[in-house]
Design a protein around this nucleic acid. Structure first.
Length: 748
DNA sequence: TCCCCTCGAGTTCA
DNA sequence: CTCGAGGGGA
């Protein structure tokens, strides 16, 4: 049956949309569609084409050249999981891994070149290296399978357990042999190897130059471009020039005449080379730890001269028997470790500075820069923290600044490059008034420096007292230097640490405070996100915290707003209703009282479980509470005595918000729980609980759940993607559990 | 008075 | 995740 004009139009629309999103996705830009939405469109097009022969076109996204259409990639289970590698960031951490490993192998502690691992390797096989070092190339990990020397499959790493079958695309990569040397008789019957596929910088640059010339969106970086091109549905569109380095062995079944499986990492490299598989030319044997460390350091200079991105060095044990003996943790093998070089820096131009108003009224300068690629992401913004910081670093508009990522995540301006300061560089002006409500700002200075002055002044005051008692003349100011040492340098503009808008009714602050109040750990009103709050504030429906609980009176007004349907409004009203019973602790945590967050709110409600009792507490009583000192106490009292504070609490009470806190009796099993009395830190991504749920649960069992690791920590619960906390816990010798162990213990 | 430990607050990008 | 600052023990 021929398609109707409407169907033809729809099919055309779907084809252009799908191609456009494909292009966006592979350019590493922001996809406008989720994978599921993309698949839905693709399916719709497929169905249209199936029903109407005349809609078929050779270039349809549902087809690939000369083959059957692919709906989606086939998921393939890895025979041996492809794990990720643990990271270290300095020599001590690397050494700690090495010592741990030597100990786990049951060898003598390795204190010199003749002991430990080195000695063990020499005994087993004279001249054998203990370790191997190999650059960590920033590309895409994949697994290749050969049968009788023929390439039969290429699979992405995926989640480590299973990945996507990309064989059709892999065949177009000339760096990957489709037939091994010596095939079929002198190759393994089955061979599965792992490697990294990447795009050399020169290839990437040429590709982007072509795209720019054709007025197409350039690709974000070589790695995204590689990942994108491997996920092409049409192999003809895979970019040329991809390179690959094979680095690990998955499976090696020798077969009747084939070579025997290698038993060491160095042996594997030699064997791979014999079979025609490319390996990294900068990999080295290392007899001892010190040798390995020398390679690590030497490569830090060399890596910048290479034509591909590297972000570290992998250190591996050479002996496969030792690999087997050590095994793996749930996320990474114990027999190798990555050393990450100090955060990469990038230089870019500072274009603009905006002053943001925070929920406390703090004004923060936020820099906008020319987009620059840094450690895998494109960076445009960075906080400049405060005006003192701007002055101390002497940052001007139009300066070229050097940026790096703190903790691999948050971009920071490290310094300006003074030689590159242009003629049109202008100092960054700090606002004298709030950019939103024009109230004159208040300035805070470094408390430590203020304290130095206070200490110096006290010394003088005490001396004057003493002089009075001893009935002698007080010291002359010119003698102070001699008696008390030189006075601290006077405070100047460079000591400014914060600028505040003091107006409690500032609209910008109100927006931020409302957003905080409805946030996850406070009132937890899911339907009220940042966007919606701003919408409602702009519409005049939210002018204070209490208004949230009156939103249901403005149903019609809300329905007038953009992207606000019946369903969303119902959701919102139900969420607001539920929020009324969250209790005093969460209300206090949401109020933005200085120095009172979730922890402080808990302490306060433990001492004063309802608002009336809290209202009656004076500063001294408050300061008696554990973890509450004079400064926090004053801040709490100040809030409770302020007009806004009292009015807000009364308003919330009138609207039916629960201003009491039930004191949870510990469940009977708490006493024998292994978590009782333990100080626990949770990190990483958990599967079965949200982190806050697990925290709440462990607390009912008598545990203290804290946010940072120290030597007081009894236990670290590490989910996947655990970061520096895991490393720190290991270096402090803190016990670490994975999620499965927690689950098993809780169920026991 | 000095430190160590925690908490609060601000923050970027996918 | 990191910084700064408050709290509290040594």
């Amino acid at each position: 049956m021929p398609a109707t004009p409407a169907q033809q139009q729809r099919a055309h629309f779907l084809r252009t949309e799908l191609s456009r999103h494909n292009a966006l996705y592979y350019a590493g830009g922001t996809p406008e569609l989720s994978d599921a939405d993309f698949d839905a469109l693709l399916r719709e097009l497929q169905e249209l084409e199936d029903a109407h022969q005349d809609l078929h076109t050779p270039d349809s996204p549902t087809r690939r050249v000369g083959g059957a259409p692919i709906d989606h990639f086939v998921t393939v289970e890895h025979t041996v999981p492809m794990l990720s590698i643990d990271n270290t960031y300095n020599q001590d951490e690397l050494r700690a891994w090495y010592d741990r490993t030597v100990k786990a192998l049951g060898l003598e502690p390795d204190d010199g070149p003749a002991a430990g691992l080195f000695a063990a390797r020499q005994a087993a096989s004279p001249g054998a290296p203990a370790l191997r070092t190999e650059p960590k190339v920033d590309g895409v990990a994949l697994s290749l399978t050969y049968e009788n020397g023929q390439l039969i499959r290429g699979v992405t790493r995926g989640d480590g357990r299973r990945g996507d079958d990309i064989t059709h695309n892999i065949r177009t990569v000339t760096a990957i042999p489709t037939t091994l040397k010596g095939a079929p008789d002198h190759t393994p019957a089955t061979l599965e190897v792992r490697g990294e596929i990447f795009m050399p910088n020169a290839v990437f640059a040429a590709l982007n130059a072509r795209r720019l010339a054709a007025e197409e969106e350039p690709y974000a970086n070589p790695r995204n471009c590689t990942a994108g091109t491997l996920k092409q549905k049409d192999p003809a569109k895979v970019h040329g020039g991809l390179e690959v380095f094979i680095h690990n062995l998955g499976v090696w079944e020798p077969g009747p005449d084939g070579p025997a499986a290698p038993t060491t990492q160095s042996g594997f490299f030699a064997a791979a080379t014999d079979l025609g598989l490319p390996v990294n030319p900068d990999a080295h044997d290392a007899a001892t730890f010190d040798d390995a460390w020398d390679h690590v350091q030497a490569f830090n200079d060399k890596r910048h001269t290479l034509d591909h991105a590297t972000d570290g060095m992998v250190v591996k044990l050479d002996d496969h028997l030792q690999h087997a003996a050590l095994g793996t943790t749930s996320k990474s093998p114990r027999w190798c470790i990555a050393f990450k070089y100090a955060a990469d820096r990038a230089a870019t131009k500072l274009l603009d500075v905006n002053w943001q108003v925070g929920k406390t009224g703090k004004l923060t300068p936020r820099a906008t820069m020319e987009p620059v690629l840094l450690a895998g992401t494109t960076v445009t913004h960075a906080s400049l923290h405060n005006h003192g910081e701007v002055l101390r670093k002497d940052i001007h508009l139009n300066d070229t600044v050097e940026i790096e990522k703190a903790g691999e995540i948050i971009p920071q301006v490290v310094r300006v490059l003074p030689a590159k300061r242009p003629a049109d560089a202008t100092p960054i002006a700090a606002p004298a008034q709030c950019p939103d409500c024009q109230t004159p700002v208040e300035i805070e200075q470094d408390t430590r420096r203020l304290n130095e002055h206070a200490v110096y002044a006290r010394k003088i005051a005490r001396d004057i007292d003493k002089a009075k008692k001893e009935a002698r003349a007080p010291r002359d100011a010119s003698q102070y230097d001699e008696a008390f040492g030189p006075p601290p340098a006077p405070l100047g503009p460079l000591d400014e640490t914060a600028r505040y808008c003091p107006n409690p009714a500032c609209p910008a602050q109100l927006r931020e405070r409302l957003t905080h109040f409805v946030g996850r750990n406070q009132m937890d009103i899911d339907a009220l996100g940042e966007k919606t709050v701003h919408q409602l504030v702009d519409a005049g429906l939210l002018t204070n915290l209490g208004d949230i609980f009156r939103l249901h009176q403005h149903r019609d007004a809300m329905l007038q707003l953009e992207r606000m349907g019946d369903k969303k409004v119902d959701n919102l009203i139900a969420g607001v209703e539920a929020a009324k019973s969250r209790g005093l602790r969460r209300v206090l945590a949401g109020l933005t009282i200085r120095h009172v967050g979730s922890g402080g709110a808990m302490r306060l409600t433990q001492a004063f479980p309802d608002i009336d009792q809290l209202m009656q507490a004076n500063e001294e009583t408050l300061a008696d509470i554990d973890d509450v000192g004079p400064i926090t106490a004053q801040s709490v009292r100040h809030f409770l005595d302020s007009d806004v504070g009292r009015a807000t609490l009364e308003d919330l009470g009138r609207e039916g918000v629960d201003l009491t806190e039930a004191i949870a009796a510990p469940p009977p099993e708490a006493a024998d729980s292994p978590f009782n009395g333990k100080t626990i830190v949770i990190t990483g991504t958990l599967e079965h609980w949200s982190r806050s749920d697990l925290k709440a649960h462990l607390e009912t069992l008598g545990a203290k759940v804290s946010g940072s690791i120290s030597k007081n920590t009894d236990l670290l619960i590490a989910g996947t993607k655990a970061g520096s906390k895991l490393t720190k816990a290991q270096s402090l010798g803190v016990e670490v559990w994975d999620e499965a162990k927690v689950k098993a213990t809780l169920e026991a």
